[in-house]
């Protein structure tokens, strides 16, 4: 190679080669690629809409679980308090309460179906004297309907 070689002395040549028929196939490959990209774009809006919902789902479920547990605990505490309060009442206090507020209504009987055999037997085994005493005790005649 000459030591004083200039760029202009070298003929311009493209030394790179391409596989045979490459430029005949390339347009088709490009068209296929654009078509695939179009499909991706078409489904992308749906995915972008669904993505935030999907991301919010886990914290939403956790929040609902906490809220559920919170209200369940409140209810449990209220029931527990009620049981404790009732248990602490003396028999006399209960009798005074029932004497003042308890009124037997038709709806109360509906709660006890005839199918409830134990209750029916217990009820039928009461002697007529006891039943009269009971009626006398609740002063049915004084009830204002």
């Amino acid at each position: 190679m000459r030591k004083d070689m200039k760029l202009n002395d070298i003929p311009k040549r493209n030394v790179h080669q391409v596989p045979e028929g490459y430029f005949d196939r390339l347009p088709m490959q490009i068209m296929e690629r654009t078509a695939r990209r179009e499909q991706v774009t078409a489904t992308a809006w749906y995915a972008s809409l669904w993505r935030p919902v999907r991301h919010a789902m886990a914290p939403l479920i956790l929040l609902l679980m906490f809220v559920g547990i919170y209200f369940f605990n409140i209810q449990q505490n209220q029931q527990q308090e009620m049981v404790t309060t009732v248990a602490s009442l003396s028999d006399e206090e209960i009798m005074v309460y029932l004497d003042t507020y308890a009124q037997v209504e038709t709806a109360d009987f509906e709660e006890h179906s005839l199918a409830d055999q134990d209750l029916a037997v217990e009820f039928l085994n009461v002697s007529s004297t006891t039943a009269e005493e009971e009626l006398e005790y609740y002063k049915i005649n004084d009830l204002d309907y």
Binding site: M1, I10, V15, H16, Q17, V18, P19
Partner: peptide, 8 residues
């Protein structure tokens, strides 16, 4: 895929 003489 590249073809050329030494100078190229």
């Amino acid at each position: 895929d590249i073809a050329g003489d030494e100078v190229q």
